[in-house]
Structure formats: structure tokens, C-alpha cells
């Protein structure tokens, strides 16, 4: 891991300049950041699916997926909903402000293992950012992966994030993007599907042999997706998710993110359904 200096203060963050701010929805923003230390910017690398501990100085730290592709060397991005003390402070940050970053932490997606497979991404609401990094990575290494299907839904049209990128992905060959909103969440000019992600996914009749599936969203969405995948013949070992238990240290010490014997910050956040089925429902 990134702990080269054995005597270093493992809690001290990197300082990062906010390069750009994007408001995604009425209560979701994404920030693009660059390392202020040029040496750190040069040496930094991560795997898509890993997370960081981001901080607003004076307010505290919060855990977010690094939602940019690991191929983008000039910046990292993360996306957050305004719900508490830290995210209220992050909400107010502007270009050239400085925030803190610790990481990368956790295991990431096994993109090498996924090579040669069709990829199915199923996301609900604010779960799009941790899917987005894997989609971009797969598109940037297009020859390594088969058909790509993305089903993404939110409560309402206004709650969909990275909408412009959904359009961009759909322009790629062998990529199918299905957008949906919960019943009642549509607008008069809504052209996507209406329904919950699992149902919309089932209706989409994805024909795929031995796909890898990444499903991230509220527990109920994941629960209702699994029987559909089972019917398609997808084994739990090929279904991945990212567990988002509350974390503080990110480095396996502070004691709160465990699901049974698994410390999510160290052995996760990416687990297969096969792994998850062996664990108690502590997430």
C-alpha cells in the first residue's frame, strides 16, 4: 500500500486544489481535484473502485469513491450529496479552494479479471459515481471488454447525475444505456423508462453470455436485482458490488466498517455477491 515512509503520519492528508465544481442535481455536486505537491501528482496512482477520505478543513472528513478513471493522470474526481456537516462545507467550495485527500484505500474493481466479458452496470441514484469510473475505464480499454450495458435510475429526472456522460457513452459502439426514473419521477418530456432499476433491467432483456455485473444502489435495489440475474444464469461470483459502510480511518483501525470479519476499508469495498452471501447482514 501507499505507506512508503514507515514513520509517516498516516492520518495526514494530501492537499488538493479544486480544479472545477459541477452541480449535478439540486443536492449533488462533483469536484475535480489536483495534487498541489507536483511530486505527489506525478507518483499518484489508483485503481477504479478504490475510495478516498476527503476533507473540508474546519469541518471534518468523509469517505467517497474516486469516481474518475484511473487513466486520467491530471486529476481525480468525487461526487457527493449535501447531507451533513462535511458535505455542507464541501458544497461551498469553489475553484482554487483547497481540500484534503487521503488514499487511495480499499481493493478496487478487478478490471483485469473482467477482461473478455460483457459488462452490465446497474446503478441507482447517487450510486452512479462508483460505476462511472469503471465505465470510463472500460471504454478507454474498449478492446478488452465485450458488450456494455448500463441501466441507471433515480427517483426523479432531476436526481440523475452525469446525464451528459450517459449520452456520450451511448454514442460508443456496443454500448447500450438505459435510463429510468421511479414512477412519478418523470417529466412531460422524459424519453427514458419509467420504473425501478431491477424491473427496467428485466424488461431490457439483456442477452449476454457469462457477463460481469456491477450493481450498486440501495439495499432494496440490489435485493430485487439478484433473482433476475439468477434467472439469466449469472452466478453470484460474477456479480460485484461496492459496500459503503461508514468509515473514519480508512486503514483498518477505527473499528466500525466491518461486515462480520471483513473490514470493508481493507478487504472491500468491492465484494462479489458470493462473498457477501457468506457474511452476516451488517451493511
Amino acid at each position: 500500500m501507499d505507506n512508503a515512509n514507515a514513520n509517516a503520519n498516516v492520518y495526514k492528508p494530501d492537499l488538493m486544489e479544486v480544479v472545477s465544481v459541477r452541480q449535478q442535481t439540486p443536492d449533488v455536486k462533483s469536484l475535480s481535484l489536483r495534487f498541489i505537491d507536483p511530486e505527489r501528482a506525478r507518483s499518484f496512482s489508483f485503481q477504479v473502485g478504490q475510495f478516498g477520505i476527503f476533507s473540508a478543513f474546519g469541518y471534518g472528513e468523509s469517505t467517497f469513491n474516486i469516481c474518475s478513471s484511473s487513466n486520467w493522470k491530471d486529476r481525480i474526481e468525487f461526487c457527493f450529496r449535501k447531507v451533513g456537516r462535511v458535505t455542507e462545507a464541501l458544497w461551498k467550495t469553489e475553484e482554487h479552494d483547497v481540500v484534503g485527500f487521503r488514499g487511495p484505500y480499499g481493493n478496487g474493481y478487478p478490471m483485469d479479471v473482467w477482461k473478455g466479458h460483457d459488462l452490465v452496470f446497474l446503478g441507482g441514484g447517487i450510486a452512479m459515481p462508483p460505476i462511472r469510473c469503471a465505465v470510463w475505464y472500460a471504454l478507454e480499454n474498449r478492446a478488452d471488454y465485450g458488450e456494455i450495458t448500463i441501466v441507471y435510475g433515480a427517483r426523479s429526472v432531476a436526481d440523475l447525475v452525469y446525464v451528459d456522460e450517459l449520452d456520450e457513452w451511448a454514442k460508443h459502439e456496443r454500448v447500450r444505456v438505459v435510463r429510468c426514473v421511479d414512477p412519478g419521477g418523470e417529466t412531460p418530456d422524459w424519453k427514458g423508462e419509467i420504473g425501478f432499476v431491477p424491473h427496467v433491467f428485466e424488461r431490457a432483456q439483456v442477452q449476454s453470455k457469462d457477463p460481469v455485473v456491477l450493481v450498486i444502489g440501495p439495499p432494496i435495489m440490489i435485493k430485487n436485482t439478484l433473482p433476475i440475474l439468477d434467472k439469466m444464469g449469472v452466478t453470484p461470483a460474477s456479480v460485484y458490488t461496492s459496500i459503503e459502510n461508514r468509515m473514519k480511518c480508512g486503514i483498518g483501525k477505527c473499528g466500525r466498517c466491518n461486515v462480520g470479519p471483513i473490514y470493508i476499508c481493507k478487504d472491500g469495498p468491492v465484494l462479489t455477491m458470493e462473498q457477501l452471501q457468506q457474511l452476516p447482514a451488517d451493511y
Binding site: Y59, C249, C254, G255, R256
Partner: peptide, 11 residues
Amino acid sequence: CHCFDIVDAGP
């Protein structure tokens, strides 16, 4: 017992 929190003491 060793569980801990990390918090900011603000301005």
C-alpha cells in the same frame, strides 16, 4: 476497546 472517531476542532 480501541475504536475511534476522527473529528475537526474548528476555528
